[in-house]
């Protein structure tokens, strides 16, 4: 029962256009074109965004998967840590690469014993060392178990990251470390387009207070991206959603 159907009237009949209409059309086309030009992009980015960020401030939304009690939401969760390196040169990036390379045994043995990780990898993007992983269950439990098994690797990496010195050694700063990691886990924009309106309401505690103009959705998104520079677009695709790493291993007969 789809809606949005549209209908025409007087189709085929050529309308008599005056020069006024002609001018209106031209102006209209000019505006459509204007929106695609570089100067407009410049104005939007440098003036309009700061202006609206000041006029209608938005809170930086929390990173990581959104809390849920439903089992499907609690397996195969995405962690996307983006951690700015202190040393923003090739040397800094090489140090990060080295820290990972030197700790391969530690990482693999640790992940085997944490038991809830599907995939985990380190990536360098520009001046950030990133850790992307897919894990089951609660975030704090995941990081805590991680600290227990490979805290030393975490320490070696986090030491190279801005602000990292305050939370290492991780085994001595477990609570602070978990909060710090959570803070670096990027915001996951919902798969449901209109959820960004709801997320912001929740963060601002103004649920139901006139945020209902759908046409404002682009601005809300822009302003969130202004305070949350790195985001995950959606919660990601899963080939076999709803199953834990251990369930997959058990099903394949490779032990868990």
């Amino acid at each position: 029962m789809a809606r949005n159907g549209t209908k025409t009237k007087a189709e085929g009949g050529t309308s008599q256009k005056g020069w006024f209409d002609w001018l209106g059309d031209k102006l209209d086309q000019w505006v459509d074109w204007l929106a695609t030009t570089k100067p407009f992009a410049f104005i939007a980015g440098r003036i309009l965004v700061p202006y609206w960020a000041w006029r209608t401030p938005v809170k930086r939304l929390e990173g990581g998967p959104r809390p849920s009690v439903q089992p499907g939401d609690n397996v195969q969760r995405m962690m996307n840590l983006v951690m700015p390196l202190k040393d923003k040169s090739a040397v800094g990036r090489a140090l990060a690469a080295l820290a990972i390379a030197q700790n391969k045994d530690e990482i693999y043995a640790g992940l085997d014993n944490v038991g809830t990780v599907h995939f985990a990898r380190f990536v360098i993007v520009d001046d950030n060392i990133c850790m992307f992983s897919v894990y089951d269950g609660d975030f704090s439990n995941y990081i805590r178990d991680f600290i227990v098994t490979i805290g030393s690797v975490f320490d070696a990496v986090v030491e190279l990251v801005e602000g990292g010195e305050d939370v290492i050694p991780s085994a001595k700063h477990v609570e602070k470390f978990i909060d710090w990691v959570h803070d670096h886990d990027i915001y996951q924009v919902s798969d449901v387009a209109t959820d960004i309106l709801r997320d912001q309401e929740e963060a601002n505690g103004d649920a139901g207070a006139g945020n209902d103009d759908l046409r404002l959705l682009p601005r809300k998104l822009i302003l969130q991206l202004n305070v949350n520079r790195n985001v995950s677009l959606g919660s990601g695709y899963r080939a076999y959603p709803g199953y834990s790493a251990a369930q997959v291993r058990q099903q394949f007969g490779v032990g868990w």
Binding site: V69, P71, N74, V75, T116, D136, G137, D138, S140, N141, R144, V174, E175, I178, G242, Y243, S244, A246, Q247, R249, Q250, Q251, W256
Partner: peptide, 26 residues
């Protein structure tokens, strides 16, 4: 001594969800 590591950890992954054993997960 640690609500997060004990009470919450037990509640969210074990009591509910059943992550500790693939035979009860979900």
């Amino acid at each position: 001594a640690n609500l997060g590591a004990q009470f919450e950890a037990m509640s969210c992954d074990w009591l509910n969800l059943g992550l500790q054993d693939p035979r009860i997960t979900g």
